[in-house]
Design a protein around this nucleic acid. Sequence first.
DNA 1: GGATGTGAAGTCGTTCACAGCT
DNA 2: AGCTGTGAACGACTTCACATCC
Lengths: 215, 215
Amino acid sequence: MKATKVPEATIRRLSTYTRYLKELEEQGETVVSSAQLAKACGVNPAQVRKDLAYFGEFGIRGVGYYVKDLYEDLRRILGLNREWRLAIIGIGNLGTALLNFKDFLKENYKIVAAFDIKPEVVVGRVAEKAGKPAEILHPDRLKEVAKERKIDIAIITTPPSEAQKVADQVVEANIRGILNFTPAQLKVPRGFIVKNVYFTTILDNLVYLLQSRRR
Amino acid sequence: MKATKVPEATIRRLSTYTRYLKELEEQGETVVSSAQLAKACGVNPAQVRKDLAYFGEFGIRGVGYYVKDLYEDLRRILGLNREWRLAIIGIGNLGTALLNFKDFLKENYKIVAAFDIKPEVVVGRVAEKAGKPAEILHPDRLKEVAKERKIDIAIITTPPSEAQKVADQVVEANIRGILNFTPAQLKVPRGFIVKNVYFTTILDNLVYLLQSRRR
DNA sequence: GGATGTGAAGTCGTTCACAGCT
DNA sequence: AGCTGTGAACGACTTCACATCC
């Protein structure tokens, strides 16, 4: 057990491990080794052990890890053992998809609000897709609603040109976490955290790899 | 100019640089320094120069880089100077969003096919959103259609449980690039490339950071 | 003068290899 | 005997600092 800073990559992998552990648990497996976990998640066995070592000792030498215990420990470590309340800002195609996307979201994530500059325009689209009338709010109400509904995280799916302005409002509303789907580089004050989901960039990346290996 | 392997992170950043260069060009700027580029993209100036150094010398000492030239050089390096033909497999909420998502996709990406196991079920949804009847094909036709339409990249947006099966069909169709939006760990033979857009994982990551800093 | 290009130093993350438990 | 936990070796990427060139 250390107090060292935990690499970002470690957290990403812990998240992957939990998914696999959940599967194992559903299959009734009780024990798993670092080697097995590593293979399933495409990493080195020592890496698995190192990742866990940042947070304590979870295994039994000569045996492995108890699936259920490790699963629960990891969920606790990652903060997935409590509810996180999300708002989606920018109800275009992507925002709409996310609103309807509950299947992909783990149970501990709850979408509690949706914002768009043109509520009246987008409300129809969401309604027809969700099968019930949806409530879309104007971003000017962010601060008020954030407090009222205890929003933890803002997901930004506006056009890139609007993203920084929205981010400023999010900060103003004191929502500390931002998941940014736009390619814009958001600037936020210390204490706020932005994570980017650059799938455009990842696509570019894929293209580079494809292109550079046909030599 | 070196023949060393280029770090993945470098490619990601080059992609970011191109976006900023495009902006500069539109604003009529002709020259940019590594310091300016670095600031806009949130990295170290030396990093910018190192990234570029993998591919040659693009700047003029004492001056900086010509915006237009660098933009075009980077596009060429990344392989963005030709058309890439995409197929989307799995026309649920996310797949539908991507189909309607042309605004986010650069001009050189073209969606040329959409697949789903239940074409008749999803076709209505896409049609009404796109404003014109859409053609949704059954994945069994992947191989045939891939050849015919020269599909370069498959974007997988099926439920996680179907992802590996679909990936096998993609490989069978000899589509070399896969952009995987599911949390499944896809196994493909050597020569095929998978890139993951784990936004679920990134969300977990954000939660960890939020949770661990409130101490 | 001033900004690039780059070896060298530094930092961070991964893998090895083995001691330590069960 | 077997698998974890971990210091040490390794490797990869980043940052520094300065020589180089316009």
